[in-house]
Simulated assay, not measured.
Amino acid sequence: MSSPLPPIEIRLKRLPHGRGLPAPAYATAHAAGMDVVSAEDVILAPGGRHAVATGFAMAIPEGYEVQVRPRSGLALKHGISLPNTPGTIDADYRGELKVILINLGEEPFVIARGDRIAQLVAAPVQAARFAEVEELDETVRGAGGFGSTGVRAR
């Protein structure tokens, strides 16, 4: 992958049921996400959810996370998505990566071992702290909530 930043190293531990599967990898030179594959066969019924095994665990460097995102082709063609997108894998998690998939389509969806099911994006984490105050600064939007800026472009 070509990037202005040097790649970080994410250590990957292959689990017994993940042997023979490809490691997460970029499909093209400018891809932002690495494709990850299923380590199991699953039939996902319409409306169904399943934590799909990937067959590996990883050690993400401190100060980073790995985001799990849907694959656009699966979402458009079959209604397959992630109910918690993007999912976050924290740097201190060492268990198997499982991808929670949901079938928002109308037909059962078959996932075979080795099928690409999601994308992984490594991202830096910015720590934050909350400072309790009596008042907040004013903005044009103010307290306007969902839909308050309208639908049409201005």
Rank of each mutant, 00 (worst) to 15 (best):
T85R: 10
G48Y: 10
D115V: 04
I10N: 07
F146M: 11
A29M: 12
I10W: 10
A23I: 04
L82R: 08
E107I: 04
E135A: 11
N103E: 11
I117T: 05
L44G: 06
G147E: 02
A31Q: 07
H17A: 03
A57G: 15
P83K: 10
D35Y: 02
E107P: 06
E96I: 09
R113G: 07
G142R: 01
R113S: 07
L101R: 10
T28A: 13
Y26K: 11
V125K: 11
G55L: 01
P22L: 08
P61G: 03
K77L: 05
Y64Q: 07
A31S: 14
D90L: 06
R11H: 14
F56A: 02
A29Y: 12
G145K: 05
K98D: 03
T85P: 10
P83E: 08
P6R: 14
V121P: 06
Q119R: 10
V133M: 11
V110Q: 14
V99C: 08
R116G: 11
G55T: 03
Y64N: 08
K13D: 12
G63S: 03
V52F: 05
P61K: 06
A25G: 10
L136E: 05
V66E: 12
V99S: 10
A128F: 14
N84R: 13
G79L: 14
D92T: 09
P124Q: 01
F130K: 15
I89S: 07
G63E: 03
H78I: 02
V99D: 07
P83S: 10
P70L: 01
G144C: 03
A59T: 13
S38A: 15
E106C: 10
G73D: 09
P86H: 10
I111G: 03
A75L: 08
L104D: 05
V52G: 09
A57R: 05
E134C: 02
E65M: 02
L120A: 11
A122K: 04
A29D: 15
G73A: 07
G114A: 14
A118E: 09
D137Q: 09
A27N: 00
E134R: 12
F56I: 07
P7V: 13
V121T: 10
N103D: 12
V140N: 06
I117F: 06
N84H: 15
A27G: 02
T139W: 02
L5D: 14
S38P: 14
L5P: 03
V37H: 12
P70V: 02
I80V: 14
I8E: 03
R94K: 13
D41I: 00
A53N: 10
R116F: 05
G73L: 01
P24G: 07
V99E: 05
Q119G: 09
I117G: 04
I102W: 13
